[in-house]
Amino acid sequence: MLFFSYFKDMVGREVTVELKNDLAIRGTLHSVDQYLNIKLENTSVVDEDKYPHMVIAFPFLLHTVFAPTASILEVGGPSHQGSKVERATMTWGGRIRWEVSGRANSELKLCGKVGLQYVALSVSTLFSRSVRNCFIRGSVVRYVQLPPDGVDIELLHDATRREARGG
């Protein structure tokens, strides 16, 4: 009951829950139950590069941009001013996946060539949904990283001694 009570007091705080499959989810603690099942709100996956399938995204067409033909491209679209594209290789008409330095994943389609230096690209951007909720079964939790100011050490010691006496 000690940790159930403790987590109930932590409701509304930011925590990082690390699961036994190494996935780490950060979010606001919404609720907890006696099994230490955890409900998180406004979640984000801490290591998104490692777990791209955990990022729910939806595509929509953004605009046509012109980009240099070099392997690292500067994209000059209205919402991607100065964004850096990494490891972009492409074939005519082929789709490629790329990432801008922000959080959006995008898909480019080569639709024309403008001179030697620049190509025209139609860009559909997959925006990551940043607001999500999730329920985590207690048994799959390995760690919960707690906010440093969310731990009243004296209170925990007293509660632990009470629990140890069988209270």
């Binding site: 000690l2 940790f3 403790y6 036994k20 707690l146 925990l156 632990t160 629990e163």
Partner: peptide, 24 residues
């Protein structure tokens, strides 16, 4: 010492009969 080749060193602040713990 934990499963999956993990070790922790820290100050023990709370524990229960399941060995759930809070470490600092």
């Amino acid at each position: 010492k934990l499963r999956s080749d993990r070790e922790l060193r820290g100050k023990l602040h709370a524990y229960d009969q399941h060995l759930n713990m809070i470490l600092g």
